[in-house]
Amino acid sequence: RELEKFANEFKVRRIKLGYTQTNVGEALAAVHGSEFSQTTICRFENLQLSFKNACKLKAILSKWLEEAE
C-alpha cells in the first residue's frame, strides 16, 4: 500500500519537475552509480516489478527526488 502510494506520488512529482522516465534513469547514475532503463522506471510507476525490487528502487528514487527538488 505504501509502495503504491509512493509510486503514484513519484510519477506526479517527476512530471512536475519536467523529467521523463529516461531522464530519471540516467540521473540515477549520479545517486546510485548505475543507470536504470526507462522500462524499469515505467514498471516501477505501474507497480510491475517484484515487491523486493520495487522496495530497493523506492529507496533509490526517494533519494533522487530529494536531490531533484
Score class of each variant (00 low, 15 high):
residue 1 R to L: 09
residue 1 R to G: 11
residue 2 E to L: 04
residue 4 E to M: 07
residue 4 E to F: 09
residue 4 E to T: 10
residue 4 E to V: 12
residue 5 K to V: 09
residue 5 K to C: 05
residue 5 K to W: 05
residue 7 A to V: 13
residue 7 A to T: 08
residue 7 A to S: 08
residue 8 N to D: 06
residue 8 N to P: 03
residue 8 N to M: 13
residue 8 N to Y: 12
residue 9 E to D: 14
residue 11 K to M: 06
residue 12 V to I: 13
residue 12 V to D: 11
residue 13 R to E: 00
residue 15 I to T: 12
residue 15 I to D: 01
residue 15 I to S: 09
residue 15 I to R: 12
residue 16 K to A: 12
residue 16 K to H: 03
residue 16 K to M: 08
residue 19 Y to W: 09
residue 21 Q to T: 13
residue 22 T to K: 15
residue 22 T to E: 15
residue 23 N to K: 12
residue 23 N to F: 15
residue 23 N to V: 10
residue 24 V to H: 07
residue 25 G to H: 06
residue 25 G to N: 01
residue 25 G to Y: 14
residue 25 G to V: 14
residue 25 G to A: 15
residue 26 E to R: 06
residue 26 E to F: 02
residue 27 A to Y: 11
residue 27 A to E: 15
residue 28 L to P: 02
residue 28 L to C: 01
residue 28 L to F: 05
residue 29 A to R: 12
residue 30 A to P: 07
residue 30 A to G: 09
residue 30 A to C: 12
residue 30 A to L: 10
residue 31 V to C: 10
residue 31 V to R: 13
residue 33 G to S: 03
residue 34 S to W: 06
residue 34 S to K: 14
residue 34 S to V: 12
residue 34 S to D: 13
residue 35 E to D: 11
residue 36 F to L: 08
residue 37 S to R: 03
residue 37 S to E: 06
residue 38 Q to T: 15
residue 39 T to Q: 15
residue 40 T to N: 04
residue 40 T to D: 15
residue 41 I to S: 02
residue 41 I to D: 03
residue 41 I to W: 07
residue 42 C to P: 03
residue 44 F to V: 00
residue 44 F to I: 02
residue 45 E to S: 01
residue 45 E to L: 01
residue 47 L to S: 11
residue 47 L to W: 03
residue 47 L to P: 02
residue 48 Q to R: 09
residue 49 L to T: 04
residue 49 L to D: 02
residue 49 L to F: 11
residue 49 L to A: 00
residue 50 S to E: 14
residue 51 F to V: 14
residue 51 F to C: 06
residue 51 F to M: 11
residue 51 F to I: 12
residue 51 F to N: 09
residue 52 K to Q: 14
residue 52 K to T: 14
residue 52 K to Y: 14
residue 53 N to Q: 13
residue 53 N to A: 14
residue 54 A to Q: 07
residue 54 A to P: 04
residue 54 A to H: 09
residue 55 C to L: 15
residue 55 C to Q: 15
residue 55 C to I: 14
residue 55 C to P: 03
residue 56 K to M: 10
residue 56 K to A: 10
residue 56 K to L: 07
residue 56 K to S: 10
residue 56 K to N: 12
residue 56 K to W: 06
residue 57 L to W: 05
residue 57 L to Y: 11
residue 58 K to L: 02
residue 58 K to F: 01
residue 58 K to Q: 13
residue 59 A to R: 13
residue 59 A to F: 09
residue 59 A to C: 12
residue 59 A to Q: 13
residue 61 L to P: 04
residue 62 S to G: 10
residue 62 S to E: 14
residue 62 S to N: 07
residue 63 K to I: 09
residue 64 W to E: 06
residue 64 W to S: 04
residue 65 L to N: 00
residue 65 L to T: 01
residue 67 E to K: 11
residue 67 E to D: 13
residue 68 A to K: 14
residue 68 A to V: 12
residue 68 A to E: 13
residue 68 A to R: 10
residue 69 E to N: 02
residue 69 E to S: 08
